[in-house]
């Protein structure tokens, strides 16, 4: 039973992820799509917990479900009618896209099957949060700082772009 539980959880989360992702992509209602994206992200967070990546899982819930989804909902509500009659792009490339995507996924899958990954049996770090915190401040300090600058730039950029021109603040 204890051996079977992870598999059951994996399959369950996998089904939720795939179905919600599909509903995001094919659904007709934008609001629903955003909601299904939330479900998808929660299921991904579940995978993170299953993979002993507690911090990433928590951040997933905070950042994505709490932040990104809300922001996207704002976007949805500001720009479009909730129930679009036709969601499919008028650009006629459905056949090509489906074929290409299937081929790509098959190629990736075959790579993953073929590759002999060296699996480590070591125990995962017990105190992942402090470990990650230390790494951010030591080995990854430069990328960390760069990302913070990037976020600041994105923040300012988003405001500048979205602001209506000519209107004083």
């Amino acid at each position: 039973m204890s051996n079977l539980a992870p598999q059951v959880i994996f399959i369950g989360l996998g089904v939720i992820a795939v179905v919600s992702a599909l509903l995001v992509v094919v659904g007709r209602n934008l609001f629903h799509a955003a909601m299904f994206l939330g479900a998808y992200m929660l299921s991904i967070a579940g995978f993170y917990f299953l993979l002993d990546a507690d911090l990433v899982g928590i951040m997933q819930v905070f950042v994505y479900v709490g932040g990104v989804i809300v922001m996207l909902l704002f976007g949805v509500m500001l720009t479009a009618q909730m129930t679009n009659v036709r969601m499919v792009s008028a650009v006629k490339q459905r056949g090509g896209t489906v074929l290409s995507v299937i081929v790509l996924v098959a190629l990736l899958a075959s790579i993953f099957k073929k590759t002999a990954f060296v699996i480590s049996q070591a125990t995962p770090a017990q105190n992942a949060i402090s470990l990650v915190g230390k790494l951010f401040m030591t080995d990854y300090v430069l990328p960390f700082e760069v990302v913070s600058v990037l976020l600041l730039a994105a923040l300012i950029g988003a405001i500048v772009v979205a602001r209506e021109e000519g209107r004083p603040q």
Binding site: V91, Q93, T97, S100, L104
Partner: peptide, 21 residues
């Protein structure tokens, strides 16, 4: 050269597949 970004994205995907193969 349709002008549709999505077309171009599909071409990129096709190119990627060719590169992988």
């Amino acid at each position: 050269q349709t002008g549709y970004v999505q077309n171009y994205a599909l071409y990129m995907l096709a190119g990627l597949i060719v590169l992988i193969i």
